[in-house]
């Protein structure tokens, strides 16, 4: 964090002022979604990008958080906002159990195991009708008609998540996480308890994902298993958000989240109704092409390879004295 802090100040100020300047609920809604994805993408990044455990199952934690909030309202008869308190810890707890099962596997096998666990959770939520309501889902009424409370709450969660990850990565844990990512055996031979630190990484990661899920329940007010436990729309999207922005960088997933949400919405709505109708059919395709392009030419994502992009962009290659390295 040697780079000037004024960037962060500008971002925070802009983010705080945004809904007051742009008074359209629609754009505020898009920003809330993007902030939600900032949290999911950043949490995924902590486990995958920093600790090297590529999870294909982050929908589990998102879903657990969302259902915790939803069930607070439907089963316990208390406000779904309690889910904001409970969702994170419960997701972490489930994360510990899943980690206990899956962390004995490495690399691609870990990834496969998380896919399987994710699917099991989804199917269980579909079948266990008496608890979850099955595919009829849970519908609540939003507490606020204005978007502002949701926006600032999402903003707080997003900055909280980014800050927490920043702190974690600057602590002793962070060094162990990266050591495990680079070479688990070497890390273990140095006395790092890989299992423990992978679990810690997962606990933090699942906590924030669960919190995001609980927020989703409160904000979107409707969930069903296909929405919150979706492999394609949550787990894989979380990965792509991280990949596009840059894995193992603090600001990569947030950037990826904004790109993903706005790219998809721009195309889905045919450039906000200005373009021809058929453009809307391209909304996933364009995103897929971007993913391929990024992986092929910017293996570390837009933020991770920013210096490379800048060097290509400007002719003054000499200036690229690589001020900020990886994992800033």
């Amino acid at each position: 964090m040697k780079a000037p802090r004024w960037h962060i100040v500008v971002i925070v100020a802009a983010a705080l002022a945004f809904p007051l300047i742009v008074r359209s609920d629609y754009y505020v809604h898009m920003f809330i979604l993007a902030l939600l994805w900032v949290v999911i993408g950043s949490s995924w990044n902590l486990l995958a990008g920093y600790t090297g455990q590529v999870s294909f199952g982050h929908a589990i934690f998102f879903g657990i958080g969302a259902y915790t909030a939803g069930l607070c309202a439907t089963k316990l008869g208390i406000s779904a906002w309690w889910g904001m308190l409970l969702g994170g810890p419960i997701a972490s707890l489930i994360g510990l159990v899943i980690g206990w099962i899956c962390f004995r596997l490495r690399g691609p096998y870990f990834a496969l195991a998380t896919i399987a666990v994710g699917e099991i959770f989804r199917l269980a939520a579909v079948v266990w009708r008496s608890l979850t309501g099955g595919m009829q889902g849970i519908l609540l009424m939003q507490s606020f008609r204005s978007k502002l409370p949701y926006y600032y709450l999402a903003l707080a969660i997003a900055f909280g998540c980014i800050y927490a990850i920043h702190r974690v990565m600057r602590s002793k844990w962070g060094y162990y996480f990266i050591a495990i990512r680079e070479d688990q055996d070497a890390a273990e031979s140095m006395g790092v308890n890989a299992f423990r630190y992978k679990s810690l990484s997962l606990v933090v990661s699942s906590f924030f994902t669960g919190l995001a899920g609980a927020f989703y329940m409160n904000y979107m007010a409707f969930i069903d298993p296909e929405v919150v436990f979706s492999l394609h729309h949550i787990s894989i999207m979380a990965i792509l958000v991280g990949i596009i922005g840059g894995v193992g960088t603090l600001w990569g997933p947030p950037l990826g989240a904004f790109i993903m949400v706005f790219l998809q919405e721009t195309f889905r709505s045919s450039f906000f109704g200005l373009g021809p109708r058929w453009v809307s059919e391209l909304h996933v395709l364009v995103f897929g092409l971007l993913v391929i392009f990024v992986i092929l030419y910017m293996a570390n994502g837009i933020v991770g390879d920013w210096d490379k992009i800048r060097r290509l962009g400007s002719s003054k290659a000499g200036a690229a004295s690589a001020s900020a390295g990886k994992g800033s």
Partner: peptide
Amino acid sequence: LIKVESILPENQVLMTVGIGMVLTELAR
């Protein structure tokens, strides 16, 4: 991708995700 240096060794796997998405959307 084998020659590209990246943080995650799983880059090829993630590439197949992208390929899958593009194939599906082209078919659509």
